[in-house]
């Protein structure tokens, strides 16, 4: 179970990897949105595509 601090550290790390250098207010708003959508991203990363699931064309 991740703590709030763990989540925030993960978010900050992802921003660094993406090359985002944000003002404090932008960072707070983005963090809130990132948290709200985290379940969807977890769902994406947990999905197991089948062999026939080739990328959409």
């Amino acid at each position: 179970m991740k703590t709030t601090d763990d989540r925030r550290a993960q978010f900050d790390a992802e921003c660094r990897v993406a090359g985002l250098s944000l003002a404090a207010r932008d960072a707070e708003l983005l963090y809130a949105m990132w948290l709200e959508w985290l379940p969807e991203r977890d769902r994406l990363r947990a999905a197991v595509p089948a062999a026939e699931d080739e990328p959409w064309r």
Partner: peptide, 18 residues
């Protein structure tokens, strides 16, 4: 927010989209 997805996320999404 759109910048926080990885290349693998995008490709996984394209596969699930199919």
């Amino acid at each position: 927010f759109s910048a926080l997805f990885t290349a693998q996320d995008v490709q996984r999404a394209q596969r699930l989209r199919a």
